[in-house]
Computed example of a mutant assay.
Amino acid sequence: MHFQFDVRRVLPSRLAAFVIAVFLALSLAGCATRPVTGTPVRLDDTPRIAVMSAFEPELTLLLRQLQAPARHRVNGVDFHTGTLQGKPVVLFLSGISMVNASMNTQLVLDRFNIHSIVFSGIAGGVNPGLHIGDVNVPAQWGQYLEVLMARETAPGKFTIPPRMEAQTLAPFGMLHPRPVETRTAASPVPVRKFWFEVDPRMLAVARDLGSIPLESCNAGVCLTHKPQLLVGGNGVSGQAFVDNAAFREYAFKTFQANVLDMETAAVGMVAYSNSVPYIAFRSLSDLAGGGEGANEMVTFMNIAADNSAKVLLAFLAAWK
């Protein structure tokens, strides 16, 4: 036997409608106020600096210097706690790509007591005044592949939808970069941002580092010049490995970028949303398509990775 209760059969129509309306309102209110469950459990309560790199060669030197190491594993990611230059830290790999960097930056913030973030790694050089092995510490980072792909309305002519013109930057063909919508706990109203600024106090410490002896050779491979440290300027990030001279020139002209990578702007956006200060150290392993021959990344990757790590270690030693 199947029995179905219908409130409209036992109550006058107007009263039945009222009862149904109240029931729905209470149900919706319950959904709206239900607390979030499953909050991640912290693995460590010590206030720490999150020290990130994208892939193993970038973290090698730092792991060798880590004192009193302990390992935690979450979602397949190894987090190494300990001290660097006397500072409590947690070292880990973000993984290559913007998505990996976003996901694992949030993961470390959820599972550890993080008061600041520093990134060390390699990058493609965009500014023609920089050389392989140089280390740049940009003042801000943007996402050059957060784009609108415009419609081709004539051969070589691309048109973007009406009323979206003001939201885009200078294009590269059909690609029109634009700001991304962001929000924070302190500012829940969405704000469109392209640049995510590093922490000014951390940048000031980096500016005062002075001369740091950077490597010119690794495993018999040597540069033809002495690497330098440059603090300031812009960096850009996107979901692409860039080895294209035309795009390199465009990125320098449009964003005045010194370097280009695949993670830092994503880290900057997560840091911004969580109100956590960050800074990034990036050493040039290649010229993003600006070299005379084949891409140099594999050849000079270890020199660049170690130079970035050396500047980061000097920064940690100086930061009080």
Rank of each mutant, 00 (worst) to 15 (best):
R48F: 04
R48M: 15
R48N: 05
R48G: 04
I49A: 10
I49L: 11
A50P: 11
A50Q: 10
A50R: 10
V51C: 07
V51M: 08
V51F: 05
V51S: 05
V51G: 05
V51R: 10
M52L: 14
M52Y: 04
M52I: 12
M52F: 04
M52R: 02
S53K: 10
S53M: 07
S53E: 09
S53C: 13
S53Q: 07
S53F: 06
A54V: 12
A54F: 11
A54Q: 11
A54E: 09
A54C: 12
F55P: 03
F55A: 04
F55C: 02
F55I: 13
F55N: 04
F55S: 04
F55K: 03
E56S: 07
E56M: 06
E56V: 05
E56F: 05
E56L: 06
E56W: 05
P57K: 11
P57H: 12
P57S: 13
P57Q: 10
P57Y: 10
P57F: 13
P57N: 11
P57D: 11
P57V: 12
E58P: 15
E58W: 12
E58Y: 13
E58D: 15
L59F: 03
L59C: 05
L59A: 14
L59G: 07
L59S: 09
L59P: 01
T60E: 15
T60A: 15
T60V: 15
T60I: 10
L61Y: 15
L61M: 14
L61R: 13
L61I: 07
L62I: 14
L62E: 06
L62Q: 09
L62N: 07
L62K: 08
L63E: 10
L63Q: 06
L63G: 00
L63S: 04
R64W: 06
R64H: 12
R64P: 06
R64G: 08
Q65K: 14
Q65H: 11
Q65C: 08
Q65R: 14
L66H: 08
L66M: 08
L66Y: 10
L66P: 07
L66W: 07
L66T: 09
Q67R: 07
Q67H: 03
A68G: 03
A68C: 01
A68P: 01
P69S: 01
P69Q: 00
P69R: 03
P69D: 00
P69I: 01
P69C: 00
P69V: 01
P69H: 01
P69F: 02
A70V: 03
A70E: 11
A70L: 07
A70K: 10
A70H: 14
A70P: 00
R71F: 02
R71E: 14
R71H: 08
R71L: 11
R71D: 09
H72Y: 15
H72D: 14
R73I: 10
R73K: 08
R73G: 00
R73E: 15
R73W: 01
R73Y: 00
R73V: 14
R73P: 00
V74A: 00
V74K: 02
V74T: 04
N75I: 01
N75K: 09
N75P: 00
G76C: 02
G76I: 03
G76D: 05
G76Q: 03
G76A: 05
G76N: 04
V77F: 01
V77Q: 03
V77T: 11
V77P: 01
V77D: 00
V77K: 01
V77Y: 00
V77C: 02
D78W: 06
D78A: 13
D78M: 02
D78L: 02
D78S: 11
F79K: 04
F79W: 08
F79H: 07
F79N: 01
